[in-house]
């Protein structure tokens, strides 16, 4: 436990040195800001920048509710561009240590592999969750300001559910980072798997129960309708997937050089 705390502290110092603790939240603030602002000003933007000739906005189409706008921040910004930013920013967490021999050195010190892996996972998860929560908060503020208020319970529960999906993403990148040494392969495989899991959502009810990405859709439902379906099962499944991935990471790293 002591070693875990020392390693965790080292990771946070590293984030500070690399300014990650500053620019990472800024990226998510921009992403969070984009959805409500663009949605609200879309007609004005089209008018100003042109390109609206021939386009008729159907007045019968219902205006987006504030809940839908905030949910779109998750679905359209965080789950797409945001996921790519997360993967690219944290994919070096173990890969860099392996590549430059640092992992070998750390593991000759009185540090258990589990402490090492957990310190990597928890520090990066905290960084990502902190950054996303700041972006989400800004998105919520602008949505309320430009549209209507959203019940705070829906906002908080929606984010809580979404955090489980983020925990899964970080666990997947952790494993990929332990498996691949080449940056390009690592990035492509991580993003590819995540998008595949995302795309598979909704194909089949049983598959939905097993997919960790369903919790992301449930988070959006929670924000829009204030209701989630089978949420407990989705949380358990996503947590289980994350634990399996962390376990596989430890197993992968425990195979020493031949």
């Amino acid at each position: 436990m002591k070693q875990y705390k020392v390693l965790l502290k080292k990771e946070w110092k590293q984030f500070l040195m690399e300014w990650k603790i500053i620019w990472f939240p800024i990226v998510f603030i921009l992403l969070g800001l984009m959805q409500p602002v663009v949605t609200y000003y879309m007609p004005l933007l089209m008018e100003t920048f042109g390109g609206s000739e021939g386009i008729t906005i159907d007045p019968l189409v219902m205006k987006q509710t504030s809940g839908e706008v905030l949910a779109s921040t998750i679905g359209s910004q965080f789950d797409q561009l945001g996921v790519m930013v997360i993967v690219i920013s944290i994919m070096g967490m173990i890969q860099m240590d392996r590549k430059d021999g640092m992992l070998d050195i750390i593991l000759t010190k009185p540090v258990s592999l589990i402490s090492y892996v957990l310190s990597k996972y928890s520090s990066h998860l905290l960084l990502v969750l902190f950054s996303i929560s700041v972006g989400y908060l800004i998105s919520y503020g602008y949505t309320v300001f430009l549209f209507d208020p959203i019940p705070i319970q829906n906002v908080l529960l929606g984010f809580a559910y979404y955090s489980f999906w983020i925990a899964f993403i970080v666990a997947l990148v952790l494993l990929m980072s332990a498996v691949f040494k080449q940056t390009a392969i690592l990035a492509i495989s991580s993003i590819g798997i995540l998008f595949m899991i995302h795309m598979m959502k909704g194909w089949n009810r049983i598959l939905d129960l097993l997919l960790p990405s369903t919790i992301s859709a449930e988070a959006m439902n929670q924000i829009i309708t204030g209701q989630g379906s089978e949420i407990f099962i989705h949380i358990v499944v996503t947590v289980l997937w994350s634990i399996i991935l962390i376990y596989l990471t430890v197993q992968k790293l425990s195979i020493r050089k031949e």
Binding site: Q14, M17, T108, K109
Partner: peptide
């Protein structure tokens, strides 16, 4: 790979790796 075993020694390799920052 136990902490107990690794506490017994300090290893200085030929090429020393450190965190750059």
């Amino acid at each position: 790979s136990s902490v107990d075993y690794k506490k017994q020694f300090f290893y200085i390799p030929d090429t020393i790796q450190v965190f750059n920052h």
